[in-house]
Design a protein around this nucleic acid. Structure first.
Lengths: 177, 177, 177, 177
DNA sequence: TATGAATGAGATTTCATTCAT
DNA sequence: TATGAATGAAATCTCATTCAT
């Protein structure tokens, strides 16, 4: 799907996404979003009712992008985990802004219920996948391993250069010896 | 030094800190900060020149609180690492807002040089401590272990309940066997 | 074009002009300008980006009014000079505020480059006209005569009643005999 | 009288005078005046009750400086006129700021009665001197000549470089031939 | 005489949103 | 779907002035 075929709404969401990556949610200005798409600021409201709705849409967009790292269902657990972590590393490298935006959204989710809903749904899915994998791998404490992975990924979000170094340590089966 | 003896400036910084924890940096309002301390909003500028300066002062305050988790110098490395992680877990449990504020500041640091300066200085110190410990412990890749700890801590910042679970996995000497 | 048909921007500029005449540039308040036109103060910014831009527009407006005193091109020099001075005297009598505003702008021009640009352009045009006339009249030192006229006009700006007395002395061809 | 012997009040008045020359009456800030003298802004109020009083004092100071151009009483009229114009030219060259300040005060006088009182008194004196001289010189219309001189001087105030050119034309006895 | 703290009034500007066209 | 004009609420910051010390 090329850019020209995107709906106005999608264009707006992507423009907002880019703006959040650049200036933060705090720096998000509807005027600029509209300008980026080439429409008037008041026209924007025909496509997105309110600023909060736009932010929620940005959250949905981000969740969609993150979902692409889910491992294929048919793979054996060890390979699936490896595939997932590789996909994450790849995504961090190719689209670092996505993770900046995610960090912004995590903070916003604390105060905005509609953002929280999206963020929590995405995270629940991720958590389920990881727990499933670690359980299949026979890990002693799959939940703990899961949280470590999630925390580590979230923690390197703003420093993409360090992501490979950190992610490489998460695939190892044994944690204590 | 009890609260009543704090300088007005310190009172303001702490009030701002609390407000950031509650409403985010985005929701920080000088009016409310002043009101919380019981002075006029114009008087606030008598003590803190500008909002940016206040935010920087909040960052300093946060850095100071985090510094209390540094392990005592005389401890052997294994105990020092344990002490540090325990102190972190303790701080997360007792003062979860500190970590919320830290997450806010990490994002702000991307755009505000004076906040960035404080945040980077704090993080550099932390990194040095961890790398020293892991080196002393004979870890194969002390830098990698350091980044994993930092990332994991940052990643659980907003979910204090999960902190023990995650932190418990970071002290283990062996990662791969 | 009657007042009711003026663009909002023009209405605002004229209201600002009147306010400067009354209270000085120092006393110019956007709130009052907007109120005078009957719109909200925030709407004013929809038409004029910034206060400085409004002041610059006022300067343009003043320059336009002053330009009406330029003598018709076809007149012989003596008549042209007389016509110009008469037009000036007439303008001083009919629109004394214009000259008050001009005096304000001359001072502001020292500090505001965009006002300076307008003021200097207007003055350069005036100077060129006068020098042309005095040269055509065979004056010994056209530049000197020009500056005397300009200075004298500027000097009586704030005392319209004295303008005729002063202007009457500027048309005389011979200055020293 | 050297600077160190000036009263605090005089120091403040001179500092204010300099600041008006630099930033205009509009840009006059008590804080800066106090800082320039090396005292606290609130201490300033022990010496000058109010900002308006300080401005009036600046006007007095300016009037005092202008008074130095009055011609010695004993000179014959022609020489006295020449002496006065020379003194003016000299003052413009040596202390151009004085004339900037004067221009500011003329505008302020329109709105501030206490400034107006000072300015009018000074101007009345000047007018009396000039009219006396032109009368003694047997001018046909001494009042008119007086106003031309006053206007011309006021008109070149902001362009000291042109002052000699303009002033030179004001001493000539004959105006029409 | 000097100061630091406090005040209150006010000013410009920004921004999301609405409405009529 | 699109727009330009308008709004109202709010926010930061400035500044002269006052008061207690």
């Amino acid at each position: 799907m090329i850019d020209g075929e995107l709906s106005r709404r999608d264009q707006l969401v992507r423009a907002a996404f880019a703006l959040v990556a650049e200036a933060g949610l705090e720096g998000l200005r509807l005027r600029r979003v509209a300008a980026e798409v080439g429409i008037d600021q008041s026209t924007l409201h025909h496509h997105v009712a309110t600023k909060a709705a736009l932010v929620a849409a940005v959250a949905e967009h981000a969740a969609g992008l993150l979902a692409t790292t889910a491992p294929p269902a048919h793979l054996p657990p060890a390979a699936a985990l490896r595939a997932h972590l590789d996909a994450l590393a790849d995504l961090v490298a190719r689209r670092p802004e996505l993770f900046t935006v995610t960090a912004e959204l995590d903070l916003r989710a604390r105060r905005d219920p509609s953002v929280r809903a999206v963020v929590e749904r995405q995270e629940a899915g991720w958590r389920a996948v990881l727990t499933g994998l670690f359980t299949a791998l026979g890990e002693a404490d799959p939940a703990a391993r899961t949280e470590l992975v999630i925390a580590a990924v979230k923690g390197v979000r703003l420093v993409p250069d360090l992501a490979p170094l950190v992610l490489a340590q998460l695939g190892a089966t044994d944690r204590t010896g």
